[in-house]
């Protein structure tokens, strides 16, 4: 599986004209395993949403190399979903096949869903309502949906937030498996030890890119301090950006 590279050229993603990601250029190489780190409010989630085609307010260009939307798998932050929704695990997981079957064609995904649930350590959970799951189990279900989706590019927003060490290890093993299969994996993370241990590439973002490259050269004390100095709030009356597009 060889996904195309994803090129960003002078990308600025905005909310109400305020930049959440500011003048970012670079490339997610095919098959790369990249961590996006940075303080809260640094634009990490906005960047993922823009890459996934969910955030339309941006300047600059994103070249996805012709990937269809369904070929980009997105793991949303678990907190954005309604965990009380009356739906069984297998139905959530089977929805990963949407890109292949669409809204109306019959899908027989029971076997694929059961296999994906087994892969994430939830064998036999097919008919359990998601409301009965722990936070870690719910995150495993969302990973199983990505397994069924089988996308060459994966965007993961805080995959290990709010889960215990064992679950984090299991999920990391799945991310590494995706990496080994040649998929491009991009994950927003706050656990810098995990990043240093398992992610070859890192993008350190603080609205503006601080550094992007080999993890060891990015996560220096100096870079981390620079990232931390970015104010969380933006000024209400900001001037138009002077950097030429």
């Amino acid at each position: 599986m060889t996904p195309p590279p994803i090129h960003l050229r002078d990308l600025t993603c905005t909310h109400e004209r305020h930049p959440a990601v500011h003048h970012l250029s670079g490339c997610f190489a095919p098959g790369s395993l990249t961590a996006i780190v940075g303080p809260n409010g640094a634009g990490k989630t906005t960047l993922l949403a823009t890459l996934a085609g969910l955030h339309a307010q941006f300047d600059g260009t994103i070249d996805r190399g012709g990937l269809r939307p369904a070929e980009i798998g997105l793991l949303p932050q678990a907190s954005t979903l309604d965990r009380g929704f009356p739906i069984a695990c297998a139905d959530v997981v089977a929805a990963g096949a949407w890109g292949r079957f669409g809204a109306f064609r019959a899908w027989r995904q029971a076997d694929a869903a059961a296999a994906a649930l087994a892969r994430v350590g939830l064998r036999g959970f097919e008919r359990r309502p998601i409301g009965s799951l722990s936070a870690g189990q719910f995150q495993r279900v969302l990973f199983a949906r990505l397994i069924v989706q089988d996308a060459p590019v994966l965007l993961l927003d805080e995959p290990t937030t709010g889960v215990d060490a064992r679950t984090a290890d299991d999920l990391l093993a799945i991310m590494r498996e995706w990496h080994a299969q040649g998929r491009t994996v991009i994950a927003v993370l706050h656990d810098l030890d995990l990043v240093a241990r398992a992610f070859p590439e890192t993008l350190l973002l603080a609205r503006a890119p601080i550094a992007w490259g080999r993890t060891a050269t990015v996560l220096t004390a100096e870079n981390r301090l620079r990232a931390r100095l970015v104010a969380e709030a933006w000024p209400t009356h900001a001037e138009p950006c002077a950097v030429a597009a």
């Binding site: 085609g53 369904a70 997105l74 979903l81 929704f85 739906i87 929805a95 949407w98 109306f104 989706q149």
Partner: peptide, 20 residues
């Protein structure tokens, strides 16, 4: 419209992300 409607109710971002 049942299938897309249910998916949109549960996880609207996922549906939009896969072009739904």
């Amino acid at each position: 419209i049942w299938r897309p409607l249910v998916m949109e109710s549960f996880d609207p971002f996922f549906l939009r992300a896969v072009g739904g």
